[in-house]
Design a protein around this nucleic acid. Structure first.
Lengths: 339, 339
DNA sequence: GCGGTTGAGTTAATCGATTAACTCACGAAG
DNA sequence: CTTCGTGAGTTAATCGATTAACTCAACCGC
């Protein structure tokens, strides 16, 4: 087991110059390499188990085949995984690898992360947030090609992909109206995030279209957590004119609704239909009965973002694109006709 | 906005050679650089906003300050995040970045991943599995320093860190015995994984120490999922001589136990105490009442693995270390005295 | 006054690829 | 018979750092 073979070793073994070896292996230099020579070089490389040193190559070509993935709190959210997996698969398919930096969302830390990535000459950067947000692109990014993931800029100056919250909301609401519900309540949070605003607005629009007053059907709680969801649901369901169905801001809140319904002796979906958003792996399918929920397409967004980034690497002048990724409805057993 | 400044630009601005500039900035070369010169170089670098090109540096020093993180199914498991975060933080603190590859556990794919990382001259590799396993180190790793994360080799030939399953099990069992329970059931799976074997053996030992027959108190189901857990729990709890407490292989199965208890009209913890393993963020604290569970120390294992890897980078001849990471008990409300 | 040491740099080689510019032989065109 | 183009390579510069080896002056002790 000696040292890793270098290109020079391959060239020597094949009896050619390193220039020829390089061109033969990379299929560059047009028609300058004879077919027989090319084969000889290839054979020598295979024989020696040659693997190019991409650091040396990167120095010359200014391309490292690495993409920086900057995420705020990559780790602590259960969504991150699918986003990373989607990005990773698309990248790997094109010969790229992901250099990850987790930042806890802090501005200075994000700038530092970008600088650290740029030092390593990454070819482009994915800026991911773990919840659909509107953000400003950090200054330090300079001319580095970048794409926003689960976030967008206020002015559409950068390519970005976010979930189609409106479409997803319409999808789960259609499950309810399709089953015959009109008195559809909404349980949401007061947190100021993009996702919450769109889901709320879309629900309101739907309820008004049914000729009902949203104010009678809306409950807002502080946090989008199980406990808050439980308390909110108790408030909403205790009233005699309670809605026949509830659309929850997210699955965790829906979990609270399930508990409240159980305590109030309301069967799901018999006495109350429930739909929600996020389709979290550990919640929606595990609840009983299974929760119908609009799925956040994290995997698909990750793939799209890398594809778009690769496109921008090929053509840095390409116009930025804002993409809305559909949120398909995961249909389960939490919806039935009202009685 | 011109090009990134190079070391040569800094040197010129400070009126010195690149050699001097390099030494001044890196504090290398011993006492050869005068204090005043050093300051002049530093000032010039700051002025120009100089950032070293780590690709060029890496070519020369054969160090890239990058660590490869190879994980099987990094994405699809909710644990991955904390492991990555722990590794990331330790790495970042030492000036390293993580180059991630997800492999779906396939052998050939893992070898390919390692090769792809080696091409990029990573300084070392973390081999992570998402469930505590015993694995063979892939051949291709050659002389690349490496540490196993949540996995270990059969022969202890590589450094590794895994959770102390025995300790964790003793911890949650102590919660039960401390509350006065002796008839403690165990609900587990038939899957052949390291974690399952240790948890089962430790429980068995404890039960036998109480003079009871484990066979009467054990229920095994096919998968470690909520539904299987529910069915297993129904079997265990339907019997008149049912245990007063149950230790579940993991949180998902415990979720099934909660449902079964509810259906059978058994209150937790009044009629039945429940403890479990994993302390999953979206389950254990969200169940009602909160589930007492032994926490898998993914964050700490990630940190430890990077630290150990850095140690091996400094001293490649260092003896491999096998580390057991404690699993602290997350105490919640699912345990009470039997009646 | 001479060899030796020290301090403060500089010069140039080096890491391992890619690629622009050059060479050289051969056949075809004019 | 020159000239030109073309196929098939080679030579050498280059990417941006690090670092071994060298220089050169000042000082020191004897």
């Amino acid at each position: 087991m000696t040292k890793q073979p270098r290109l020079a070793d391959v060239a020597k073994a094949a009896g050619v110059s390193t220039a020829t070896a390089s061109m033969a292996l990379n299929d560059t230099g047009g028609r300058r390499i004879g077919a027989e020579t090319r084969e000889r070089v290839r054979a020598a490389a295979a024989e020696l188990g040659y693997r190019p040193n991409t650091v040396a190559r990167g120095l010359r070509t200014r391309r490292t085949q690495m993409i920086g993935f900057v995420g705020d709190d990559v780790a602590t959210t259960p969504f991150a995984g699918q986003m990373i997996r989607g990005a990773h698969e698309a990248a790997r398919g094109a010969g790229f690898l992901l250099l990850m930096v987790d930042t806890s969302g802090d501005r200075a830390e994000t700038e530092e992360a970008i600088a650290a990535l740029q030092e390593r000459q990454i070819d482009g950067i994915l800026l991911a947030t773990m919840y659909h947000q509107v953000i400003e692109v950090p200054e330090g990014i300079g001319a580095t090609p970048h794409v926003l993931l689960d976030a967008r800029t206020p002015d559409g100056s950068a390519s970005s992909v976010v979930p189609d919250e409106r479409g997803g909301t319409l999808g789960v609401l259609a499950e309810l109206t399709g089953a015959g519900h009109t008195r559809i309540g909404h349980l949401t949070t007061t947190e100021d995030v993009e996702a919450r605003a769109i889901r709320l607005a879309t629900w309101r629009e739907r309820v008004e279209a049914n000729g009902l007053d949203p104010a009678d059907l809306l409950v807002e709680v502080e946090h989008a957590l199980t406990l808050d969801g439980y308390e909110g649901a108790m408030r909403m369901l205790a009233r005699p004119d309670r809605p026949t169905a509830v659309f929850c801001y997210n699955d965790r809140m829906a979990m609270g609704v399930y508990r409240a319904a159980a305590e109030l002796g309301l069967g799901i979906p018999g006495d109350l239909s429930v739909v929600s958003y996020d389709d979290q792996e550990l919640i929606a399918p595990e609840l009983f009965p299974g929760l119908t929920s609009a799925a956040l397409p994290h995997y698909e967004m990750g793939r799209w973002a890398v594809r778009e980034l690769l496109r921008r690497l090929d053509d840095p002048a390409a116009a930025p694109v804002q993409h809305l990724m559909p949120c398909p409805t995961a249909r389960r057993q939490s919806v039935a006709a009202p009685h």
